[in-house]
């Protein structure tokens, strides 16, 4: 999905997914909330997890401290 830019920061799509994962959610729940196709959500969550913004527990995605910080920088209250 291209959720992480080459310099390691979340893209606009990445921020949208991080925002949807403020509460622990499954990819299906995030796709429902963001109205993005599930395949794009799955690949985006994978990118954001590899970049350290999310962690996965039992099929649910949660924000890491880096994820919260990235949202704060984007002006989103976490």
């Amino acid at each position: 999905m291209g959720c992480v830019s080459p310099d390691g920061r979340p893209t606009e799509s990445g921020k949208k997914l991080l925002q949807a994962a403020v509460e622990s959610r499954t990819p299906e729940e995030i796709a429902e909330e963001t109205k993005l196709p599930l395949f794009r959500v799955r690949s985006g969550l994978r990118d954001l997890t590899e970049a350290g913004y999310l962690r996965e527990e039992g099929g649910r995605y949660l924000l890491t401290d880096s994820g919260k910080e990235a949202l704060r920088k984007a002006g989103v209250v976490v």
Partner: peptide, 13 residues
């Protein structure tokens, strides 16, 4: 063109 994708990302569609 939409980033790195796996075939399994399309599961369910």
């Amino acid at each position: 063109t939409h980033g790195k994708l796996k075939l399994s990302d399309f599961r369910g569609s």
